[in-house]
């Protein structure tokens, strides 16, 4: 199988504190890998290593067959995008949505007018109001902001998208719609996704593969279905057991 992303011996540090320990991970093309872990497990740190946002790390990041250096190329940033957890913090409050969405494309050499046309298509696709591009972030709900963030990530027509808890701050009914939207877009564009979440229900709903992280150490990886049938490790089992289930009686 062709790999979109391959991580070898990834270690990462915050100051002197090591937060990731020799993580090895592969994501196949057009697969969605769910990265699960509790707080302090290092799951968001791993995303920052992949995108090159965290400089203090060692190990090898291979993207689509190419080993990545410390500085990522412009092409890398076109092909790799990310959606963050906190809808209130992921859009610059001082810019109109139109600016937020088109700036990335303009820097890639698309003309402002073409960029606007593509934005309008995306806005319609995301079921956002028509006047979205003229408005500021504060006038949108959490769910809408996350859809805008997803639209921004899709603007540059990426192959690989990292979603860091994109639905955790949303209400359950809104979460459901967001997940469905992500699934549809994934099919339409043939995306490869690294989906970070603490919620096993969400992971099961959307992921093909799963990786479990704890205190910076990778516990187990494998196909999602196999994990939910029978986790390989005690910690995986403990996590799965802890998920609150509806008790009808």
């Amino acid at each position: 199988m062709d790999h979109m992303l391959e991580l070898r011996d990834i270690c990462a540090y915050y100051g002197d504190k090591q937060v990731l320990f020799d993580v090895d991970l592969v994501i196949g093309k057009h697969r969605t890998l769910g990265l699960v872990g509790e707080s302090g497990s290092g799951r968001s740190t791993l995303a920052r290593v992949v995108t090159g946002l965290l400089k203090k790390s060692t190990g090898t990041v291979v993207f689509d067959g190419e080993v990545q250096g410390a500085k990522r190329s412009a092409e890398f940033y076109r092909r790799v995008q990310m959606v963050f957890q906190n809808p209130d913090a992921s859009l610059n409050p001082k810019h109109r949505i139109g600016t937020i969405l088109t700036d990335g494309m303009v820097i890639q050499g698309v003309s402002r007018a073409d960029a606007m046309v593509r934005c309008r298509e995306l806005i319609t696709r995301m079921d956002l109001p028509e006047d979205t591009l003229e408005r500021y972030p504060r006038s949108f709900s959490g769910g809408q902001k996350q859809r805008i963030a997803l639209a921004r990530a899709l603007c540059t027509d990426p192959d690989f998208v990292i979603l860091d808890e994109p639905t955790s701050a949303l209400d359950v009914s809104v979460q459901r719609r967001m997940l469905d939207l992500i699934k549809e877009i994934r099919e339409e564009r043939g995306l490869t996704i690294l989906f970070i979440s603490h919620d096993l229900g969400v992971i099961r709903d959307i992921c093909d593969d799963i990786a479990v992280l704890r205190h910076g150490v990778l516990q187990e990886t494998g196909e999602s279905a196999a994990f939910f049938a029978s986790p390989k490790t005690d910690y995986g089992r403990e996590l799965l057991k802890a998920v609150p289930r509806i008790e009808y009686e």
Binding site: V172, S173, L200, G201, V202, V243, R245
Partner: peptide
Amino acid sequence: RKADVLKHPAHAYTKELVDSVLSVPEV
């Protein structure tokens, strides 16, 4: 009562909430 609300939700919104819970299998 819990059982009534969850098994036979009278309101469409309650049903939506129940359906929104993403289930995971028992271990």
